[in-house]
Write a protein that binds this DNA or RNA. Structure first.
Lengths: 327, 327
DNA sequence: TTGTAGGCGTTATCAG
DNA sequence: CTGATAACGCCTACAA
């Protein structure tokens, strides 16, 4: 008993014209008089006609849908690095009237994700680098000739990618410590920390040889534990670069709880500049990666590929040191 | 010159069987022998055949795609309340193998969002309440008989909704303040603060009449300014409930900068328990709303409606007071 | 500028 | 259990 939606045939016949003319009124290709187009558009609004999505995409072989694949999140841990990029992506696709799908990339969901890529439902994908799954997915897309943009650095084939200049960001941090008279540096690494260590060393310069390296991790708790290890191994440490802001926040919390003053006794710089960074106490000095811009740029890059651009080359995102209170 | 994907006709003819049989091998409806089904599945993997998404959805009239509509974000401000709900939604849809679309709900994007709802591309929507746009969108979905779940309270028609027990959460906070001997309460309201004020008053009890109400807003800066107003208007204030965690963080930062001790001089309770709450200094005492569960529950509710369930009723989410260091 | 008709790749229907 | 064939709703040569 439920009535079917108005389709093009019925709609056209009510207007006393052909379906072809109706179709032309909505597309940009067909030659049609401005007058009939207006009439059709107007009638479509009053009668509530819309072209069926699947029928249209079936024949045109494109959907304009963009899919964003993000790495696994750790239960209970802040995932603000990803979410800020995602909102950047979402805002940009929305502006371009591209529907956006988002998919977590767990090992268990690989089959589903591959199906999404291969069943013809989407026109392009954006994938965050850093896991085996993401690399596999990019390969799948490549084989299917599906437009693809990678966020971050992925080894192997030359993908179109939006990359961060981690090295330079870390260098800025090292230089800042050196310039503010710090002597005993430490670096807390973790996930997504490609080239940060080397950059930090280069920026710090003369005293670079005594940099203490600690493999933190990615969570607040990791930063907390890392601080305990560092202060035990090298109590004289007076400045620390953390591979991300969450680590830095954990590190600072541990330092404060041990009676260390930040930045008095020990200066701490984070990485990413997630939005909460400036509201933390002390406000975090950090390397800003322009997370939302990353999302926007990857969408724009993908758009160009989807529009048929050949040899679209990647982009590197600028970073800058944002000096606040923690260093 | 680019070769078309393998379609069902070609695939079937290579196996020497009919397209109908192939189709049955992938669905659950058709009667087919287990033996041929296995053979077809196996061959589809080696030959790389996948059913075309649009052709399939055109005839079956469903896509299984879920769309999530979220409210406008404030540029530069943390949007963690929404992002944590969104990740909950995303995780749940992923588990169910439902593709998830996400759309920001700006006034400018209403046409696009309505089109998404009306063009037949999605099977159900989840909408966060709180803006004129969200209410309009829900109405649109209702008219199109599209399954819809609302997150939060939306006046008007009786939607299927996942709601928070704001009143009880705020009551818990008021009671805690009373029980810990606080005398001069203030409440900082803002967005999404339905019934919190009344609940707080009820929980605080005897001294409820002198509660100072301040209309904060929703951002860190709002919390900061609010603190300045409150301490000026009522310096004796010794406990504050803020309508969300970001407000609370801003409030605390302002209080600390004025030399007020938290929680010594003034105890602060937030609302939502976004993940960063426990890492802030001081760690935030707050009313936990189980943000990720909200996402999961709304997906499960939507699924039931999509599967044809009639009269699916909404759910209210439990909340609890998480006592940490700020109160 | 407009209409006619064929085809997009499936699943549903109805025989066999 | 399997096969032939008619929808599904639209776009787009091609003809008028």
């Amino acid at each position: 008993m439920k009535k079917r939606r108005l389709n093009i045939k019925e709609f056209a016949s009510r207007l006393g014209i052909s379906t072809a003319t109706v179709s032309r009124a909505f597309g940009t290709k067909g030659r049609i008089s401005e007058k009939t187009r207006r009439m059709i558009i107007s009638k479509s609004e009053s009668l509530g006609y819309r072209a069926n999505y699947h029928a249209r995409n079936l024949i045109t072989r494109k959907s304009h849908v963009v899919a964003f694949f993000y790495p696994p999140l750790i239960k209970g841990e802040p995932d603000y690095f990803i979410s800020e990029i995602m909102f950047g992506v979402s805002g940009a696709t929305s502006l371009n009237a591209n529907p956006l799908q988002v998919h977590p990339l767990y090992p268990e969901s690989m089959d589903f994700c591959k199906d999404v890529i291969l069943n013809g439902s989407i026109s392009g994908i954006i994938v965050t680098a850093g896991t085996a799954e993401s690399a596999e997915l990019v390969k799948t897309a490549r084989n299917a000739a599906l437009p693809c943009v990678v966020i971050g650095h992925m080894s192997g084939e030359n993908n179109c990618a939006v990359t961060f200049d981690n090295s330079r960001g870390a260098m800025l941090a090292g230089k800042y410590f050196k310039d503010t008279g710090r002597k005993c540096p430490a670096y807390i690494g973790g996930i997504f920390d490609r080239r940060k260590r080397e950059g930090f060393k280069a920026g710090f310069g003369p005293h670079a040889s005594n940099i203490l390296f600690d493999n933190g991790g990615s969570t607040f708790q990791d930063g907390f534990s890392s601080c305990e290890r560092v202060l035990k191994a090298a109590p004289e440490t007076d400045c620390v670069l953390c591979a991300n802001d969450i680590l830095a926040i954990g590190f600072i919390k541990a330092a404060l709880s041990k009676g260390c003053k930040v930045p008095g006794d020990i200066a701490v710089i984070g990485f990413d500049d997630i939005k909460i960074a400036k509201y933390f106490s002390p406000a975090l000095t950090t390397v800003r990666l322009h997370l939302d811009e990353i999302g926007e740029k990857s969408v724009n890059l993908l758009k160009r590929i989807m529009d048929g651009g050949k040899n679209v080359s990647g982009e590197s995102i600028d970073c800058e040191l944002i000096v606040r209170d923690s260093a």
